[in-house]
Simulated scan of single mutants.
Amino acid sequence: MGFTEPTSIQKVAIPAALDGKDLLATAPTGTGKTAAYLLPVCQMLLDVPRREPGSARVLVLTPTRELAIQVAEQCERICRYTKLSCGVITGGINYGTDHDLLEKNLDILVATPGRLFEHIEGERFDCREIECLILDEADRMLDMGFGGVVNQISGEARWRRQSMLFSATLEGNGVASFARNILNEPVEVSSDPSRKERPKILQWIHYADSYDHKLSLLSHILKNDAQSAIVFVKTRERVMQLQAQLQSQGIISVYLQGDMAQDKRILALDKFKQGQVKILLATDVAARGIDIPNVSHVINFDLPRTADVYVHRIGRTGRSGQKGIAISIVEAHDMAILAKIERYIDEKLKPRVIDGLRPQHKIAALPGKKKVKIKGKAKSKKAKAKKKSASKKPK
């Protein structure tokens, strides 16, 4: 597969996992977490082969369909020269396909929580043979509301010997308490990525006066700068609107959003991965875990609602130490979340301008550029003091 040495997270996670310890692991996105848990569980399955055909011995839960498919693909590559078998179950797929898979002799099952729990309730999947439970992107599962379902699945698989929780961050809605429910005296590992592994992402912002101004900025960047770009927007409706507007300007894109049929999602991702289309429009369903090589730009057409999502979004470029560019287009109402993002990443995002598309609104004016006076703006302290002094003079 081209791997010659372990990444920093693999160096600390694999030995503990091979010892059969429960694991609580954190590492930045794009640093090899998938192989950090797949390699040791595959070794375990080879060292202790199953005696009789049966249900899956290893269960990997992921928050999104795309990540599940991606993990299953990696699993198949790792297991290629073994007799181990791997399968994937996600929402959006015909139930008949799931039934055929679950009737097979599986070693590793990768699944999204919601669809898998339907099969558990329908007694089509037996958790009693699970020896290892792995939660990938656990914080994202909680953000998406899967905490209760995952706890129920964990309860169904209570005879397991090992559990692992992997995440890009332990921040968010109670990841630590979630881990306490799932894990038993876990070894906590985290990694400080080497210089080679760290993403080299150049970040900046463009100020915009209005939606039309934002659209003009985006069109210019896509036409002139981006070789391969993921454009993030905040809603499904916005995705469709933006795709139509870009298409009217001759810019062809594919899109990815939550309520798409699975076959359409797979087709859109394949077109983007293979370079048939260079622009992918996406809601935050695509912000976590998707590993698409050679994405040159991530563009935040709409800023995310939280600062940690910003980090996961821009992590789609600069993968595995490559260079990437992250651009955010900011309107006046975005200033509060922009400030939170800058505090979170401990970096000031510098503004840039494009000739012919300079912002005119005062909040968006750049240093050295004449500011446009805004009606109703509060007077300066100096002017207020001058007025107060004049009012005190005797008539």
Rank of each mutant, 00 (worst) to 15 (best):
E331N: 03
I354V: 14
V285D: 02
A336Y: 13
S296H: 11
I290R: 03
I266G: 03
M335E: 11
A268Y: 02
P293H: 10
R305F: 01
E331P: 05
L281Q: 06
I325D: 01
V309P: 02
V277F: 07
I279Y: 14
D355K: 11
M335W: 04
T306M: 01
S296Q: 12
V309C: 00
I314C: 00
G356E: 12
A364P: 08
I290K: 06
T283M: 03
Y344K: 10
R316F: 14
P367H: 10
G321S: 14
V311P: 04
P293T: 07
H361N: 11
A286C: 11
A282K: 08
I341E: 07
S296V: 11
G318T: 14
A268S: 05
H297T: 03
D355G: 02
I354H: 06
Q276T: 06
R343C: 03
Q322F: 12
K340V: 00
V277G: 01
K278Q: 06
V309W: 01
F301E: 05
K370M: 14
N294L: 07
I279S: 10
L349W: 13
V285M: 00
M335N: 09
R358T: 12
F272R: 01
F272Q: 06
F301D: 05
P304L: 04
I341G: 06
R313Q: 04
K370C: 11
D270T: 10
V311K: 02
P304R: 05
R305M: 11
S296D: 12
R343E: 10
N300V: 04
G356W: 08
A339I: 00
F272K: 02
D346I: 02
Q262G: 08
L303C: 14
I345S: 03
K369T: 15
K369L: 13
R319W: 14
I266N: 07
D263R: 10
V298N: 03
E331A: 03
P367I: 12
N300M: 03
V330T: 09
K362V: 15
K370D: 15
I327Y: 08
V353H: 05
L280D: 07
Q274V: 04
K264S: 05
L269T: 02
P359E: 10
N300K: 01
S296W: 09
L281K: 06
T283K: 01
N300E: 07
K370P: 12
R352Q: 15
Q360Y: 10
L281W: 09
A326I: 00
F301T: 00
A364R: 09
A268T: 05
R288T: 10
V298F: 03
I329S: 06
E342V: 08
K370V: 15
D334N: 15
H312R: 10
G275T: 00
P351F: 02
A307H: 07
Y344V: 01
K362Q: 14
N300D: 10
G289I: 12
G324K: 10
V298P: 05
E342W: 12
K362L: 11
